[in-house]
C-alpha cells in the first residue's frame, strides 16, 4: 500500500542531489536486504511475469507489439526491459500501465535476486512511463531527460483526460512519476561492475529522448529514437530527429534495442528504414511547399510508396506529414543565390 501514498509534493524539493544523498543509506539497506524484501509485499508477486528474453548477458527485453493503443491493449505496446549489474538492476521503460509495470517487476524478480536501483524512462510517452508507479519504493531512483518532468507536467492533464476512453485506464496524477535524477547531457549509472552511459538528446522523436548505452555488452538502448516495423511517429521535430539519426552511428555498439520492433537488431544498420522514411518525408514536404501545395494536398499525396514497409502506417503517416509540414514552413529558407553581390565569389 505504501507506494500508493501520494508523494507528489516531495517533487517540489529543489535539491535532487540532497534527496539522492538521503536516499543512499536506504539504497544500501535495500542492497542488504536484497532479494527477500519483496516478501513484505507478497501481493505484488502475484503478478504474472512479463515474457522477457536476454539479448546479451544481463540485458533483458520484453517485445511489444505493433498495435494502436486502445482500451483492449491498454497501450502495452512498447519494448521495455532491464539490465542487471553486480549490485542492482536498472529498469528501462516501465510499460503502458501500472499492471504492465508490476509484471515487469515480477519478471525482474524471477530473473535475479538483485534489487532495482534505477528506473530509466527513455521519454514521456504513455507506453513507456505508465508502469513507473509500480516501481516506486525506497532505494529506487527514477532517471530521465532534463525535460521529462516538464513534459510529464504539461501532458498529464491531457493524458489523464484521454486515458479512460483511449486506453481503458483509470489514472491519477500519481501515475506520473517524474525523474529524481535528470540527465542534461550525459550521465553514467553504476550498477556494480557495469556502467550505463545515458545521453540526453535534443528534440527528435520527442523533446525528451534519452538513450542508454551498456558498455559491458555494447548494447545501445534507443527507446523511440528507433522504430522498426512500427511507423516512426514524430512528436518532437522531423529535422531534429534526422540530425540525431545522422549523429547516432558515431556510437559503436554490437546491437541496438528499438522502442518498437524486434528486441535486438544490428547496429547501425537498424537505423536505415527509419532514416529512409523520415528523409523522404522531409524531402517530399519541402518539394510540396516549393510547389505551393497545401497541407491537405501534402497529407493526401506524400509518401504513400512507404505504405507497404510499415505497420500502423494509416494511423500515423498523415499526422507525421501535418506535423512535419507545420515545422518545415518555418524552416530557415535555404541560402538564396547572392543576387545583390553578383560579382562576389564564394571561397
Amino acid at each position: 500500500m505504501r507506494d500508493l501514498a501520494p508523494e507528489a509534493p516531495s517533487r517540489s524539493s529543489p535539491m535532487p542531489s540532497l534527496a539522492k544523498s538521503l536516499l543512499s543509506p536506504l539504497k544500501a539497506l535495500s542492497l542488504l536486504i536484497g532479494g527477500f524484501c519483496h516478501l513484505g509485499f507478497s501481493s505484488e508477486t502475484l503478478a504474472e511475469a512479463l515474457p522477457i528474453k536476454a539479448v546479451a548477458e544481463g540485458v533483458y527485453v520484453h517485445q511489444g507489439s505493433h498495435l494502436f493503443p486502445n482500451p483492449q491493449n491498454h497501450g502495452e505496446i512498447a519494448n521495455i526491459g532491464f539490465i542487471v549489474g553486480n549490485h542492482c538492476v536498472a529498469i528501462i521503460d516501465t510499460g503502458g500501465s501500472q499492471e504492465e509495470g508490476q509484471r515487469l517487476k515480477a519478471a525482474v524478480k524471477a530473473t535475479t535476486q538483485m534489487p532495482i536501483c534505477y528506473v530509466i524512462n527513455t521519454h514521456v510517452h504513455p507506453d513507456h512511463i505508465y508502469g513507473n508507479r509500480a516501481f516506486k519504493a525506497p532505494g529506487v531512483q527514477f532517471v530521465g531527460h532534463y525535460r521529462l518532468a516538464h513534459a510529464m507536467a504539461m501532458r498529464a492533464p491531457y493524458y489523464l483526460s484521454q486515458a479512460k476512453d483511449q486506453l481503458g485506464l483509470t489514472l491519477s496524477a500519481e501515475d506520473f512519476v517524474p525523474p529524481d535524477i535528470e540527465v542534461h547531457d550525459t550521465l553514467d549509472l553504476d550498477l556494480g561492475g557495469r556502467t550505463l552511459h545515458l545521453m540526453a538528446h535534443p528534440r527528435a522523436h520527442t523533446d525528451n529522448d534519452l538513450s542508454i548505452f551498456d558498455a559491458t555488452s555494447e548494447t545501445l538502448w534507443l527507446g523511440d529514437l528507433l522504430f522498426m516495423g512500427h511507423l516512426p511517429v514524430i512528436d518532437g521535430s522531423l529535422l531534429g530527429w534526422l540530425k540525431t539519426i545522422d549523429q547516432l552511428p558515431s556510437i559503436t555498439a554490437k546491437r541496438v534495442i528499438p522502442g518498437h520492433g524486434p528486441i535486438t537488431a544490428l547496429w547501425p544498420l537498424a537505423l536505415a528504414g527509419e532514416k529512409r522514411y523520415l528523409e523522404s518525408l522531409a524531402h517530399d514536404i519541402r518539394a510540396a511547399q516549393k510547389a505551393n501545395k497545401t497541407i491537405e494536398q501534402a497529407m493526401n499525396e506524400i509518401g504513400l510508396e512507404h505504405r507497404a514497409d510499415w505497420q500502423l502506417f494509416d494511423d500515423f503517416h498523415r499526422r507525421n506529414i501535418a506535423s512535419g509540414f507545420a515545422e518545415l514552413e518555418w524552416e530557415d529558407p535555404s541560402p538564396e543565390p547572392p543576387l545583390k553581390n553578383p560579382g562576389r565569389s564564394n571561397p
Binding site: P6, P157, Y158, L160, S161, T170, L171, S172, A173, D175
Partner: peptide
C-alpha cells in the same frame, strides 16, 4: 486510483 482520480484539466 478511482477514488484518487481528479479531473485536473
Amino acid at each position: 486510483l478511482t477514488f484518487t482520480f481528479l479531473n485536473l484539466s
